[in-house]
Each structure stands twice: as C-alpha cells, then as structure tokens.
Design a protein around this nucleic acid. Sequence first.
DNA 1: TTGAAAGCGCTACCAA
DNA 2: TTGGTAGCGCTTTCAA
Lengths: 331, 331
Amino acid sequence: MRHVAQRAGVSLKTVSRVINEEASVAPQTAERVTTAIAELGFRRNDLARSLRQGSTSATLGLVIEDLTNPFYSTIAQAVEDASRPRGYMLITGSCEEDGERERELILALLRRRVDALLLVPTSSENDHTWLAREVGDSTPVVFIDRPPDGMDADSVLVDNAGGARAAAEHLLAQGHRRIACVADLPSLFTASERVAGFRAALADAGVPMPDERLRVGVHGTADAEAAVTELLALPHPPTAIFTGNNRLTVGAVRGLSAHGGDVALVGFDDFELADQLARPVTVIRHEVLRIGAESARLAFRRLDGFDGPPQQIVVPTELIPRGSGEVQPSS
Amino acid sequence: MRHVAQRAGVSLKTVSRVINEEASVAPQTAERVTTAIAELGFRRNDLARSLRQGSTSATLGLVIEDLTNPFYSTIAQAVEDASRPRGYMLITGSCEEDGERERELILALLRRRVDALLLVPTSSENDHTWLAREVGDSTPVVFIDRPPDGMDADSVLVDNAGGARAAAEHLLAQGHRRIACVADLPSLFTASERVAGFRAALADAGVPMPDERLRVGVHGTADAEAAVTELLALPHPPTAIFTGNNRLTVGAVRGLSAHGGDVALVGFDDFELADQLARPVTVIRHEVLRIGAESARLAFRRLDGFDGPPQQIVVPTELIPRGSGEVQPSS
DNA sequence: TTGAAAGCGCTACCAA
DNA sequence: TTGGTAGCGCTTTCAA
C-alpha cells in the first residue's frame, strides 16, 4: 500500500480511502490511485485490516463431526450460503467425536478471531463450561443439533422426541407390537431424545419394549448391521425396527437385505436414494439446510448487536412413507 | 499480552517466548507468566502473529463447486485431515459453477493471505491466466479434478478416459452393441474426457455410436432422468447406458426404475448404497479421499520450498461389478 | 479533500 | 536469561 501511495503521489490514507470506497476523494486522485493499484497488482491485506479494526475478521468458525457425513456437509453449505452475502467466509473443522480435538479446534478458531462460533458439540464431552469462560460474551456461540451444556447460548435442534414418537405411532398403526429400536450412544443427546420419544409412544399404547429389543450404543453402519442381524435371530424377532439416525438406517438396510425377510423399517433422517432402494425406506425427514440456515441467522443476529436471552429453535420433522414402514406384521 | 506482561512483571518479549514455548526462559519466570495468562484468560491473536510473521497465516483456501455433493465434501475432508497435523486450518468456499463467484472467492482468500489455494476450477471459465498474474509465484495453487488452463500449476486428476474406456469395454464384453452415453456439459473437462474415452473404446470395437445415443450437456439428476427416459423411447433404444458422473447415475437410476426394463447401466464415480439399490449399480470407482490427500500433499510440498516443475497426478479407476453392468442385451 | 501520526497485537532483531 | 525497539499493513483520529 505504501508503494501504491508513492507511485500515485498521495498519502497512505488516501489509498485506503480509495480501496474502501469512502466518499470524499477527488475523482482525479482516485483515478491515479486506481491506476497505481492495477500497475502494482496490489491487494489489500485483510489480516492487517482485521487486526486494526479490532474484533471483526469477517470469518465464521464451524466445528462439526465429519464432513463426509451428508448431514454435516449440508449444514456447512447452508452456513456458507448465509455468510456469502454478508462478506463472511467460513473456516470449517471436523472433530470426529473427539472432545480433545474439538477443544483444540475451537481454541484455534478463537485465536484466529472468528466473529462467531457454530458448533456441533461432541457427544463425548458435553460440558462446555470452559467455553463459556473462554469466550465470555465476546464471541457469539451457536450450538447445532445438540443443546448447550454448561453455558448459555443460542441453539438449533431437531424435534427428536416428536419425530421418534411419530415413527413409533406409524408402526403401531400398522399393527406392529414387537418393535425394536436401534440407537446410537446414549451420551449423544439426539440418540437419547429419540429413544425417549420412541419409548414414550410405545408406553402410551401399552406396548412393551423389552431390553432385548432395545439396542442402544450402536455406532456406525457396520455396528448397526450387526445389531439388526442379532435382532432377527432372537427367539421372538421384532416385526418392525426403528433406527435412530441416517448411519444406522444404512446399516439396517444392509442387515435386512441380507436377511431377506419382511421386517418393517422406519429411519430417522432422510437420505439420498432412500426411495430407490430394493425396499424404499420410510423415514423421519427434517430440513437439514434449514438447521444450518437458522444457525447462521442466530449468529448474525448476535453480530448485529442483539443481546437478548439465548434462543432455542426446534426444526420440525415429517414422516415420509416409502414402503418399508408400511409393511404389516408377519406373525 | 501487555496486560499479561504487566501482571507477571516481565517484558512483552518474555511473554511471547513463553507462549511460543521458546527455550531460554527461566522456569520461575515461565511459571509467573503462565499464571498471569490463566488469570487473565489471555489468548494469542493469530491474526497479529500472521501479520508480523509475514506471509504465513497457517491457512489453506479450498474452492469447490458445492459441499452437498459427496465428491467435494470428501475432498474437503481429506484436505482438512492433511492440514491438521501441520497446524493448518481450512477455509472453504463453494462457487457453484459460477465463474464470477469463483473469482471473488479466490480474491477473498488471497486477501486473507491463505498460504496455498486448492481449486476445483469452474467449468464455465477455464482460463486462469488472471490467476497466474494474481498469485505470481507467491501462493502455490493446486488444481483438482480439472487441469490448469492459462497457468502452470500442480494438479490432481482422475483417469477419466481410462475409466470410461473400461466401462465401455465391460459393456461390450456382455455383448451390448446399442450403447448410450449420458454426459455432462462438454465444457467440463471431466465430461469431455470421459466421453472421448468411451467413444474411443466403441470405435476400437467397431461399434457405432450414433448421435441419438450420445447425450451430452446433461446436468444434474433431474436432467439425467429425463435424458434416460428419452433414450428408452427411441425406436431402437439402447440396451446399455453409461453415465458420466455420480449425479447423472442417480438420475439414470430413477429413469430406469420408472421404466422397469432390463437396460444395463455403468456409472462413473461410486456412491453410497449403490450396492443396495433395487438394481445394484456397477460403477467406475476411484479414491476420492486420495484426490484430496494428494492435492494437500502437493500444496505442502510447495510450502516446504519445493520449486520444481508442475506435477500432474492421475488417480486410477477400477470397475466394480454389482449387477446393473452385467445385464445381457435383451434384443 | 487530503495528510501525518499513532497504534491494533504480535514477533524479529539486537543489546544488556 | 531478559528487555527494548522497530515494524508487519492497515485504519483511526485529528489536523490542515
């Protein structure tokens, strides 16, 4: 910038004014500066700009589990879409369910002075009291998919219990009475909420849910496939299965297709090609893009100065019948 | 940091030394500084650090088409995985096939002084002469999935022609002679390469490929579904179809499943659940994670000082038979 | 309309 | 082992 000023024969400040399109620069002067910029291939250093301007770096930090899971990459896309029109960029980090890594990622983002932090907290370490201490109220934090624990913050959740209840009621309505539930680690908020909603619906209908049909702590597709296989081998196998998330549903699809029977299946989370499988899968759908969009909205609202109490947004769910959930009980 | 120095009763420089774990600080002094840091909740400002240190911001910039496409999000994940151990973070931007947006994203990343730029160039504007001017040889650039045009740079490509040729030869081996090809916009490097490889294989076998069976410029799943539907309505419909990428394959699956016939299908790119569809899909697979990993490797090699000529890495492909590609011609 | 000087938070360099 | 000073590239403040 100094070079530009020299070449244009003006002061640093004038160059700054031209770059930032401030008013009150004589057209002639501006012209000279613009020419010098072009000739020198000058490009503003946004790092220095951020430093001088104080807090804002026009950057959002997003911490998720894993970009290869469509659920998270869709959220990332939605947050980015909301950031672009405001001139913000997005730094993304995956912590892959490792609490320590999450912590390091967050600290790295804060050191880079991101303006806000969007966070899918790891299941392993829910307590974010330390984060509250770290950020004080200087950096807005939004919790995604799981509620804040140990601190006050905005959050965007899915209607986990409601969706799971809808799944249960749907299967009950088909006449199923031996219904199994395959869910992720109980430490995972979404998993426990969904199990709770599911069980509540069965209880309301007076339908028992013995332990042998409740498989919690199942993690990943391979594990889910194994769990389903075991369920089918029970003396009184379930006539219907509910799976608690998209990964588990994929595993169940594999397990059921290997088995060849006609066990009903309803899965939480929609996924591409669910309707094109050998047995199209009935799912509990929710708008993932909206989760990301709402998260970004909450963050920007804080950046715009809003200082009200933390808000919690709950994204609704919807049951999409595709066949696998409409199978009648066979025995 | 000044406050920390005051509280610990030492100089700025000493605090800096402690933070950066430089040697030559008396344990006692370090202790006092550490305590002060903890008490004040001090956190280093990496923006200022980067500014002072000159070029490096410990950040990589990644520009892709669209995070919701598993192909790109997998690349992003791989690049991030390679960055973490070196302490680099990743800023990702999606340009969604818009050349102008790509340009703006790249400029924004350069203004933030990313250390290297990893880029899936848009199909619409291949010429990156302007980029060569912008970066000079200060910022390494790696082109992903499509070769550099208008500048010298490292690149990581897939063996497009070879994979497409393998698909064609596989279908020919099943006895197919009326084979259709559904491909993306010809301006897309990968699309034209795959079409070329496919046609070359048919030509080598003396099998004709009339225009009516060559559908280029097909973009997205809906468009692909329509194209397949039209192909099936031809007076002499194809007995086999090759689709040029994962999106087109998904569309073709829908088109074929609505049709109900037994037309063979081979798709370029593997995708989850391809083996669980009503008709498991034979695909040309390649290691997407490796594409991202190699890209990061090339970038870091430049950052480590390597100054040799641009390198081009070609990731191999492999045909995975799953059923849809092994259907015999029906007529 | 333009410029000079100070300073954002940090590290490099040299001196003690 | 420790400290002082200068300066990264920009913007802010105030003065001309």
